[in-house]
Structures are given as C-alpha cells and as structure tokens.
C-alpha cells in the first residue's frame, strides 16, 4: 500500500470575484522510497494541492481524502496534524529566507523543531542539528550552527531548510519548487543532495516544480496538472518520450532546445484560463491544437493509456509521442472529430 493516497482532492476558495476552483479532483499515490514530481504552470493548483495536505490552506473548501499511512490528513484536527507535520511529513519551500525565521539562530530553529516533537535534551538536539547541517553540506557546521539566516547564502539557506526538514527522519518530504530561487550550480548541489537523502532515509518525496529539467533529473513518477486537474500521469521516461496529452506535449516543445537549437520554439498559444471562469469541457481546449467538438462539452476523464500511464484527453489512446508523424496522426484524429469547429 502506498504511503500517501490522495483521492479526488478538491480545493476551492471563495473570493469577492467568485469561487476559485484551485484543485478540481486530483488523485495520486506516493510510494516509500519513490519520488513523485508534480509539474504545472502558475495557477495549475500544484502548490495548493500539497499545501492542503499540510493543512496550510485555511479558509479553503476542501473535499476528497488524503490517507497518509492509513489516516486521513484532511479530517485531522489541527493538533493531530501538527504532530504529523514536521515529524512524519516535512516541507521544503521555494523561498528559504521567508521560511527561516530571521531573528533566531539557524541551529536554534532546528533544535526547537526537534524538541517540539521529541523528548530530547537540548545538547542532544543541538548535536543532532550540527550533524544535520554537516550532512547537507554546510561547511564548519559546528560553528555555523549559531549563525543567523541572513549570514547564510541562498544555497546554504536552502540546505539549512532541508536539514530542518530531515531533522525527524520524515517518511514523506514535500518540496515545493526547492531549486527555483537558486542558481544553476547551486541548484545542482541541492538536487544532488535531495536525491542522496531520499535514498539514505528511504523516504517518499514529492517535488513540485514548473521546471521540467528538475523532473527529468529527479522524479520516478510524474503528474502533470492543468487548471486544477491532473491531465497526465506517467513514469518519467514515458512522460518525456511518449506523452499523450497535448498539454504535456506543448510543455515539452516549449523548452528551448527541445527540437534542436536552430528550430523555432513551439509555444502553447493563449493564456492560462481563469480559475473562476473555466472553459467548458476540457479546460485546455481553447489552447489545444487538436481540439475536437466533444472537447468543448465533455470533461475528459483520466483513462489508462497503458499500465501506469493515464491521460485525460479525448484523443485515441494509442496516439502518443512527440514526432511529426505522431502529430499528423493526432491531427487526423482531431479532424475526424470536428464538425462544428473549423
């Protein structure tokens, strides 16, 4: 059984402009020792999704279930959730500076974190903090443990955050854009570190990112989100080489260099949809090259393309891949499904 089983998660916010449907029925599993990558662009609901699991979306209307080791995270009281969060589920956020309290020493924050969940003496907790900082590659950890966050560089802060997340050997680590604020060379260090640590502690890891490069590096399983829904779920190689959903395909083709340096990029046209005023049928249809009549009215369900590969698109299931032959096959199928739209 999976460590985390999320079923039909929905999250919406009431705002003065209307109901924002941030997550509209997302299901996924995370296994021990595996990495799930969640990709999506801003507004796709990927961050809201995991923040809801952590109980960090106050004021939201939440539906569905999220069973962590048999307990539903969504029905826990905040006291129960607090015990789980930190100790068994740890979170790493995008901006390490705002996640570390600026007025407390880094070491103190780790010590407090440990002592909030476990009965250990201060010196023991401090020794553990130093050990952790050393583990994540902070040089001279024994002396830097007493630094304030501003005395750390961006990369070191992110590593300190990771150290804090690991303090209690969590079974699940949720990393939300852990490398986005970092430079390429530092990003490489952090990715390397996260991978080593996951293997060492046999934890499960959820990586949320908009960067397909990070996904290609780290994820075992990938979930692509668009407008609050999972549009494609696949293992890493399938997703990158044999995608089914036109959105996934569009994302891959938007990356500079994906089709060779000298080819013109093929962006997805249009803008992401309003989460208040979603397009009818498939939310992606206004931007889709292969839109058919039924896409305007029927919301596509996730269907199994093959074992472990699911896609929410009305196109025939055998049409996967990125080549021009695959494209013309898709185009043919789409043309066959068009009567009303030109």
């Amino acid at each position: 059984m999976a460590l985390l089983q999320v079923r039909d998660l929905t999250v919406s916010f009431r705002t003065s402009d209307g109901l924002v449907q941030a997550v509209r029925g997302v299901s996924f599993d995370v296994q021990k020792g595996r990495t799930l990558g969640i990709v999506g662009e801003s507004g796709s609901g990927k961050t809201v999704c995991t923040q809801t699991l952590l109980g960090l979306t106050r004021g939201a209307e939440v539906g569905g279930t999220a069973e962590f080791d048999g307990q539903d995270l969504l029905t826990m009281t905040s006291a129960q959730l607090r015990r789980v969060r930190g100790a068994r589920i740890a979170a790493i956020f995008q901006d390490p500076l705002s996640s570390l309290h600026p007025l407390y020493r880094v070491g103190w924050q780790i010590v407090e974190m440990i002592r909030a969940h476990e009965r250990v003496s201060k010196p023991a907790a401090r020794a553990r903090a130093i050990e952790l900082l050393d583990l994540v590659g902070i040089p001279q950890a024994a002396s830097r443990v007493d630094d304030y966050p501003h005395e750390f560089s961006g990369g070191m802060r992110q590593r300190a955050m990771i150290a804090m997340a690991l303090a209690l050997n969590p079974e699940l680590i949720i990393a939300d854009e852990p490398t986005t604020a970092l430079d390429a060379t530092v990003q490489a260090q952090v990715i390397d570190l996260l991978q080593r640590l996951r293997d060492e502690f046999d934890s499960a890891l959820i990586i949320i990112t908009h960067d397909l490069g990070v996904i290609a590096d780290m994820a075992d399983q990938v979930l692509v989100m668009y407008a609050g829904k999972a549009v494609e779920i696949a293992d890493r190689r399938t997703l990158f080489y044999l995608p089914h959903h036109p959105y996934t395909q569009g994302l891959l083709e938007s990356i500079p260099g994906s089709a060779g340096v000298n080819e013109k990029l093929r962006p997805i046209p249009g803008q992401p949809p309003s989460l208040i005023n979603l397009p009818s049928g498939c939310a992606f249809h206004p931007r889709c090259r292969f839109v058919m009549d039924r896409c305007l009215t029927e919301i596509p369900e996730l269907r199994t393309v093959e074992r472990g590969h699911l896609s929410a698109c009305h196109l025939p299931l055998d049409l996967t891949g990125l080549g021009s032959a695959d494209d013309s096959a898709r185009q043919q199928a789409a043309d066959a499904g068009r009567e009303k739209i030109g």
């Binding site: 809201v48 960090l56 969060r85 901006d95 407090e112 804090m164 997340a165």
Partner: peptide, 18 residues
C-alpha cells in the same frame, strides 16, 4: 516553532487580488 508553521501563510490566494 516549525518551519512549516513559519511559512503558514505563504502562497495563499488573496481573494481581492487577481
């Protein structure tokens, strides 16, 4: 005070802002 609590309000949609 845990890291997650410190950033509890991060990234929540502001209802009045698009």
């Amino acid at each position: 005070m845990s890291a997650s609590e410190l950033s509890e309000v991060a990234d929540l949609p502001d209802p009045a802002v698009p």
